[in-house]
């Protein structure tokens, strides 16, 4: 921690960002697997209501006559203790899981990026204050901070999302600040400054645009991390509440029957794992490719 210095700003390597990502996917099989998993999850999230075999049960309609059925041709993932088709619940749950995760990352980035850019570019007391604030936040495992916040605000999916965003923004602030600091004294920024371009135009044009690659790589990993965190919160009762088709909640609901009806917990948990794995595989490859020196946190 003490030894780490600010990362050198990303040096463009030629070709568009999309072209470079294409190269990663062609050369790295795990990245391709990751992208395939992400595409699968996104398709399920968007078309879930049409793809689920029993959409009404996915949203919570009970069917007590068919409870705790083992996986079969009709119910691929079996049914839960209220007779709901687990495949449908898992598919319908994809939308909310991805939405909340995207929102959390978007809010964290929307707070962290401008603060980090201004602090890194301006320096001085503003930078000092901001870094002290982020240090306080980071003196704490993000998930524990989120748990405490939800416990005090009251358990719900909204509060869980809010708590996660509060715990996540400092990471973006620090990431962008480090980039902005190293960009600040680069010739093209100095040229703009000496030509009289005001800071409010330099920041978006020269600083933010050149920080975007590491931010996007981080966001890729974080979308998965937030799915995992939100699922964990729901599992212990501090996230989505019944009868929401939430993956973490569904794992918790099946826990009591784990030895008699293993499928109730197994498949929703698998959905979390597959989603997080997809984002982590892709994010890890992108990070290796764009900045091999960066240590994962």
């Amino acid at each position: 921690m003490t030894a780490t210095t600010a990362l050198p700003a990303f040096v463009p390597m030629g070709g568009s960002t999309l072209g470079r990502i294409g190269r990663v996917l062609r050369t790295d099989r795990l990245a391709a697997i990751g992208l395939a998993l992400i595409v699968l999850v996104v398709v399920l999230a968007v078309f879930g209501p049409w793809l689920a075999p029993f959409p009404a049960q996915g949203y919570g309609e009970t069917n007590v006559a068919d409870r705790n059925l083992a996986p079969s041709a009709l119910h691929w993932f079996g049914t839960d203790q209220l007779g709901r088709d687990i495949l449908s619940r898992v598919i319908i749950g994809t939308g909310p899981a991805l939405t909340i995760s995207l929102l959390v990352v978007a809010i964290a980035a929307a707070i962290g990026i401008p603060l980090g850019a201004i602090a890194g570019y301006r320096g001085g007391w503003l930078d000092e204050v901001l870094m002290r604030i982020t240090e306080v936040f980071q003196a704490f495992p993000p998930l524990l901070l989120a748990m405490v916040t939800v416990a005090i605000l009251g358990p719900s999916l909204t509060n869980a999302g809010l708590a996660l965003a509060i715990s996540w923004w400092p990471w973006y602030a620090r990431l962008v600040r480090a980039e902005a600091r190293s960009l600040r004294d680069r010739p093209f920024v100095e040229a703009a400054r000496s030509a009289g371009v005001p800071a409010w135009r330099i920041l978006p044009r020269h600083i933010l645009r050149n920080c975007m690659t590491p931010v996007l790589v981080q966001a890729t990993v974080d979308i998965g991390a937030v799915v995992l965190a939100a699922g964990s919160l729901a599992f212990i009762g501090l996230g989505a509440q019944p009868p929401a088709p939430d993956w973490g909640l569904m794992v918790a609901e099946g826990r009591g029957q784990i030895f008699t009806a293993w499928w109730i917990s197994t498949f929703p948990g698998l959905a979390i794992f597959v989603t997080v794995l997809g984002f982590n595989l892709l994010g890890d490859s992108l990070r290796d490719f764009f900045d091999p020196r960066q240590v994962k946190r």
Partner: peptide, 22 residues
């Protein structure tokens, strides 16, 4: 090994625990 390592990081601990119990 890379796949296993990333898999370990992506695994919800509460779910892995239940699977091991099963």
């Amino acid at each position: 090994i890379r796949f296993l390592a990333i898999g370990g990081v992506s695994m919800p601990a509460f779910w892995l625990g239940l699977l091991l119990q099963v």
